[in-house]
Amino acid sequence: MNAAIRFTFMGTIACDSFLEFARHRARRLDLDLDIGRCDNARVELTVQGQEALVDMFEMACSLGPYDCIILDVHRTETALKDTLH
């Protein structure tokens, strides 16, 4: 089953490395990724794809790249789109 989830990752964020990390994980998991706001305290992303793979994406990004500390994650279901690109 497919899911579209909007994630807000909060903590200490290095935008360049976090977004590179998220893009890489989304490609590896064959997920569509839409990048929203990113600053030094939060990043907002929407991913769409197989539900189990979306969950894997959340786990990977919760651990984040070495220079980011993720303290909290908010997850909200959104409507499925044909494509996010």
Rank of each mutant, 00 (worst) to 15 (best):
1 M>G: 07
1 M>T: 07
1 M>P: 00
1 M>K: 01
3 A>W: 00
4 A>E: 06
5 I>C: 03
5 I>L: 10
5 I>F: 02
6 R>D: 04
7 F>Y: 13
7 F>A: 03
9 F>L: 11
9 F>S: 07
10 M>C: 07
10 M>Q: 13
10 M>D: 04
10 M>L: 10
11 G>Y: 03
12 T>N: 09
13 I>S: 04
13 I>Y: 03
13 I>T: 05
13 I>K: 03
14 A>L: 07
14 A>P: 00
14 A>E: 11
15 C>E: 11
16 D>L: 05
16 D>T: 06
17 S>P: 01
18 F>Y: 07
21 F>S: 05
21 F>W: 03
21 F>I: 03
22 A>G: 01
22 A>E: 01
23 R>M: 02
24 H>F: 02
24 H>E: 05
24 H>T: 09
25 R>W: 03
26 A>H: 02
26 A>P: 01
27 R>L: 06
27 R>K: 08
27 R>T: 04
27 R>P: 00
28 R>K: 13
28 R>C: 04
28 R>W: 01
31 L>I: 06
32 D>N: 10
32 D>G: 15
33 L>H: 04
33 L>E: 02
33 L>F: 07
36 G>S: 09
36 G>M: 09
37 R>I: 15
37 R>D: 13
37 R>G: 08
37 R>E: 15
38 C>F: 11
38 C>N: 13
39 D>H: 14
39 D>K: 14
41 A>P: 02
42 R>Y: 08
44 E>Q: 14
46 T>R: 15
46 T>S: 14
46 T>M: 15
47 V>A: 14
47 V>C: 14
47 V>D: 02
47 V>W: 10
48 Q>D: 14
53 L>E: 12
53 L>D: 14
53 L>F: 11
54 V>W: 02
56 M>Q: 13
57 F>Y: 06
57 F>W: 06
57 F>C: 08
59 M>C: 04
59 M>Y: 08
59 M>I: 14
60 A>C: 07
60 A>W: 05
60 A>S: 11
61 C>W: 08
62 S>A: 12
62 S>Y: 08
63 L>S: 13
65 P>H: 11
65 P>Q: 11
66 Y>N: 10
66 Y>L: 12
66 Y>P: 10
66 Y>A: 15
67 D>L: 11
67 D>Q: 10
68 C>G: 13
69 I>M: 14
70 I>C: 13
73 V>C: 07
73 V>F: 03
73 V>S: 09
74 H>M: 11
74 H>G: 04
74 H>F: 05
74 H>D: 12
76 T>G: 03
76 T>A: 13
77 E>L: 09
79 A>G: 05
80 L>E: 06
83 T>D: 08
83 T>G: 00
84 L>D: 00
84 L>S: 02
85 H>S: 09
85 H>M: 04
85 H>T: 05
85 H>Y: 04
